[in-house]
Design a protein around this nucleic acid. Structure first.
Lengths: 236, 236
DNA sequence: AAGATATCAAGAACACCGTTCTCGATTCGG
DNA sequence: CCGAATCGAGAACGGTGTTCTTGATATCTT
C-alpha cells in the first residue's frame, strides 16, 4: 500500500479515515443533529479532545461527511449510467434517477445531510459545491446527448422567459459547457432535478403520510413525468 | 375577552400562548436545532424547569410550533385563494402556490420545521396530519373545480398505472372526497405539490447555489410548469 | 369558612454536549 | 543527538434537556 511519508503521517491519515468511518456509521443511526463528537471518540477509545487534532470542530467533520456523501451518490449515479451506456436516452435518465433513490433509501440520514435543511445555519460552500454538481451534471449530459442526436423534443413553450431568467440560464449553460442546450431546456432540467429531490424528501422525511404502499412505484411514475418534462423521447 | 374558568386557568392559557410566541420568535432567528428551552424561559423571566408545567418536553413544544406553522401557511393560502375566487382555475392555482412561497420566504425556519428534514428522528404524526393537509387539499380542490367545469385537460398518459399505485390513489381520492378526479390526475397533483416543495427547499436551503439572481422568477416559471403538468388550461 | 388537594414557581442536581487549555510523552527533522 | 513539532490524555468551562424536591398559592370540597 502507498506509504506516504513518516509513520506519524501514516497513522494520522489512517486515524482520520477511521474517525470518518465511525462518524458516518453513527450518523446513519442517530442522524446529523444527534451526532456526538464524544460518542465518536468513545467508540475509538480516545478522549474527546483528541479528536480536535484531526477535525477542528464538529462542523468541519460534518462538512467532510457531506463531501463523502456527495461523492458516494455521485459514484453510484455514474456507475448506473455506465451500465446503461448503450440504452436510449430516456432509459439512461431513468436509470440515474433510480440509482439516486436507491442510494437515498439506503442512506437516508446522509441524504438528509446533503439535501435536507441545513443543520446549524449555513454550510461552507467552497468544498461542497464541486461534489454536489456531479449528479446534476450527469443528467444534463444525457439531455445534451439527446439534443445532439436531434431526439430532444423542444419544450412546448407558451410564454417567453423573463430576460433575467434567460440570461442567468445562458450564463449557467456556458459555465457548465453545455452549449447544446437552450435556456428553456436547462430550466426544465433544473425543474426535473428539483422534482426528483422533492419526491425523495417527501418520501424519506415521511411528509407524505403512508398513503402509498409502494413508494418505489410512485417514484418511477414521477421519474417518467420528469422524462416527459425535459423532452426525452417516449418509449416504443 | 373570553374569560374561561378560574384565574389560574386564564393565567395558564395566557402563559402557554406567551411561551409559544417567544419560542416562535426565537425559532425564526436561531432555527429549530438551536431552539433552547432555557433561552425561552430566560426571556420570560422564569426558571427552565417551570416550562415543563406547560410543555412536557422540548419535542412537545416543537410539535406545537409545527402545528402553528401548518396553520399559518394554510391560512395564508386560503386567503390568497379567497381573493381570486372569480379568476380562472390556473390563476387560482398559481396564486395559492405563490402565497406558499411568500410565506416560506418570510418564515424560512418555520418552513424548514414543517417541510425540511425531521429534527431528531420522526415526528408525532397524530396532531400534525390534519393541519398539514390544508394547502394540499386546497390545490386538489382547484383541480376538482376545473374538472367539474370540463376544463381540465386529460393527462396524456402513455402507460397504464401500476395496479397498486392506481388502487392507493383511488383510495386516497375517496378518503379526501374528491370523486371528480381520476387517479392519474391525483398523482399529477401530488407530483406538482412535490415540485413546489422541492423548489422551495432548493431555494431556501441554499442548495441551488446563487446561480439565479431572482429566485421569484424561477419559482413562477416552475409554477407555470406545474399548472401545465396537472392539465390546467393555459392562458389566452 | 376551614381544611384537604391540586397546581404553581423556584432551585438544585444529573448527565450529556462542544470546545479550550495544559501537561508530559512521543516522534520528527536538522 | 537535540530542539521542535505533534501527539494522547485529562481537567475544566459554559451550554443543553430533564428530573426531583420544596414551599407557597390557588382551587375545590365539606
Amino acid at each position: 500500500m502507498g506509504a506516504p511519508g513518516t509513520a506519524r503521517a501514516r497513522a494520522r491519515t489512517a486515524l482520520t479515515r477511521e474517525i470518518l468511518d465511525v462518524a458516518r456509521r453513527q450518523l446513519a443511526t442517530v442522524g446529523a443533529a444527534g451526532l456526538s463528537l464524544r460518542a465518536v471518540a468513545h467508540e475509538l477509545e480516545m478522549v474527546p479532545s483528541g479528536l480536535y487534532r484531526y477535525f477542528a470542530s464538529r462542523d468541519v467533520l460534518l462538512t467532510a461527511l457531506i463531501v463523502e456523501a456527495y461523492t458516494a451518490v455521485g459514484d453510484q449515479a455514474e456507475s448506473a449510467l455506465a451500465q446503461t451506456r448503450d440504452s436510449n436516452h430516456r432509459d439512461r435518465w431513468c436509470a440515474v434517477c433510480t440509482s439516486v433513490r436507491d442510494w437515498a433509501v439506503a442512506h437516508p440520514q446522509e441524504f438528509a445531510l446533503i439535501y435536507g435543511s441545513p443543520v446549524p445555519d449555513y454550510r461552507a460552500p467552497t468544498d461542497t459545491v464541486a461534489p454536489s454538481a456531479r449528479v446534476y451534471t450527469l443528467l444534463l449530459g444525457i439531455l445534451s446527448d439527446s439534443a445532439r442526436a436531434g431526439l430532444l423534443a423542444p419544450p412546448s413553450t407558451q410564454a417567453p422567459l423573463p430576460t433575467t431568467l434567460a440570461e442567468d440560464a445562458a450564463a449557467l449553460l456556458s459555465a457548465l459547457n453545455f452549449s447544446d442546450l437552450t435556456p428553456e431546456v436547462l430550466l426544465r432540467g433544473i425543474t426535473a432535478w428539483t422534482q426528483i429531490l422533492g419526491a425523495l424528501s417527501q418520501e424519506l422525511f415521511g411528509h407524505l403520510g403512508g398513503a402509498f404502499r409502494t413508494n418505489a412505484d410512485l417514484f418511477t411514475h414521477t421519474v417518467e413525468l420528469t422524462a416527459d418534462l425535459v423532452g426525452l423521447a417516449p418509449r416504443r
